[in-house]
Design a binder for these strands. Structure first.
Length: 401
RNA sequence: CGGGAAGUAGCUCAGCCAGGUUAGAGUGCACGGUUCGGGACCGUGAGGUCGCGAGUUCGAAUCUCGCCUUCCCGACCA
């Protein structure tokens, strides 16, 4: 542990220790906290709201591209997991096993899913018979568990949440196209919703998904200059369909193995959002996924009831006239001074703050401040924000009508 | 999994080396008052299995051993 910090309320500056800054920010902004089991975390309401917004955006793209959601079970029989040799070997060290149940040792141990290719293949073996059954394009939003030696909040946790898409196609080309399409969705999510610049690329032979022919990924660019793998799309070719005995009669009545893909994006992407945009005051969230897009801080004083009443009326009018769908929070906590409220919401990365006080009303204005530099792609949606590079330092005034 | 550091109030830490009344500080929390436009101030109060488990001892936060968890570096990361 380092020496005592002068101010226990401050977070470690990025320039001093970026990793420490990251942990401080996640904990202090109440995105997540450590759970009792190694490598596991609790995602707190503010963090989960962020995930839900990301999830909603990506789920829309998954549906738009013709996929359906479904659900496969958490536990996978060992024999199912073992059929694809490279896959088994790749995942073996990271699988957690259930060996007992109901007070008895199980005849066959059950894997807690590290990913679901095997169980999905085992089921679709019985569901795919004809080229008319293809393509199959499904997805599931689930938790998975991978025993990890070194873990970090969001970036690498033993249990994490993700979506895993799985598809079966008639031809190799169709599968390849699917792999590209879904990587495109990840790129769209990263760039248009999360405002993270990404580089798309192909993983090396040693880094690819075990059992895949090749793996494509988007690598998000972080503020500290590192790249972070933030979504992967795999061409599985016929490796799994052969191993699991999935076949169909093609258009000329020849028996064929379908060509598969799988693709996933996890809660790690939250870590990418944090590291790509955050600053020394804490989080900086992209407006389209921010749980709170606008925070209104009314300036009221107990010794000025008349002015305070006017402020409250003005705030009510702002709330009333705000466009539908804007996620707004009015911070009317009592007994907390405005400065502390500013710090509170800056730590949590709220894109836009509106401050309304009696003086402002007298001058027929409100103070708007965009602490976060919001990239242009994200702006103009529901919330307009400035692109002021000086961020918090500069306050911009706008009309409150 | 290897190397290093750490775990004492919600948080950040002091106390430990040289075991000995009732374990402290700051911050946070509750209440009262003064304040109120960038993390206010004064007062009062609540809050602790000293990470867990053994051992040594008349006596352990303090010494010994084991385990758990976190952080940093490395290996691994599909």
């Amino acid at each position: 542990m380092s020496a005592a910090r002068a101010d226990p309320k401050a977070i470690t500056p990025q320039s001093k220790d970026f990793d420490r800054w990251y942990v401080d920010t996640v904990l202090r902004a109440e995105l997540a906290d450590y759970a009792p089991v190694k490598g596991c975390m609790v995602i707190r309401p503010y963090g989960f709201a962020l995930w839900e917004n990301i999830q909603r955006a990506l789920d829309g793209m998954i549906k738009r591209t013709g996929h359906e959601n479904m659900y496969f079970p958490l536990l996978i029989p060992e024999s199912y997991l073992k059929k694809e040799a490279e896959h088994v070997e790749g995942f073996d060290p990271q699988v957690a096993w259930v060996t007992q149940g109901g007070g008895k040792t199980l005849d066959e141990r059950l894997a807690i899913r590290p990913t679901s290719e095997t169980i999905i293949c085992s089921m679709y073996k019985d569901w795919i018979h004809s080229w008319r059954d293809l393509p199959v394009k499904i997805n599931q939003w689930v938790n998975v568990y991978r025993w990890e030696k070194r873990t970090r909040l969001f970036l690498r946790t033993a249990e994490f949440l993700w979506q895993e898409g799985h598809t079966f196609h008639e031809t190799d080309e169709q599968a390849a196209e699917e792999v590209d399409t879904m990587l495109g969705c990840y790129r769209e999510l990263a760039e248009d919703w999360l405002a993270i610049p990404v580089i798309a690329g192909r993983k090396t032979e040693s880094e690819k998904f075990p059992g895949a022919r090749y793996t494509l990924s988007i690598e998000g660019m972080m503020a500290d200059g590192w790249a972070l793998q933030s979504g992967t799309s795999h061409h599985l070719a016929q490796n799994f369909s052969r191993a699991y005995g999935i076949s169909f009669s093609d258009r000329s009545n020849q028996e064929q193995h379908p060509h598969q893909t799988s693709w996933g994006l996890s809660t790690r992407v939250i870590g990418a959002v944090i590291m790509a945009h955050g600053d020394d005051a804490g989080l900086v969230l992209p407006p389209r996924v921010a749980p709170v897009q606008v925070v209104v801080v009314p300036i009221v004083r107990s010794n000025d009831p008349d002015g305070s009443a006017l402020v409250e009326q003005a705030v009510a009018r702002i709330v009333d006239e705000l466009p539908e769908g804007v996620r707004l929070r009015v911070d009317n906590r009592e007994g907390i001074r405005p400065g502390e409220k500013y710090a509170h919401w800056e730590l949590r990365g709220v894109p836009l703050r509106l401050v309304v006080g009696a003086q402002d009303l007298a001058a027929r204005r409100a103070r708007g401040c965009a602490p976060a530099a919001a990239p242009r792609e994200c702006a103009g949606n529901a919330v307009r924000t400035s692109q002021d590079p000086a961020r918090r330092a500069k306050h911009r005034r706008c009309n409150a009508r």
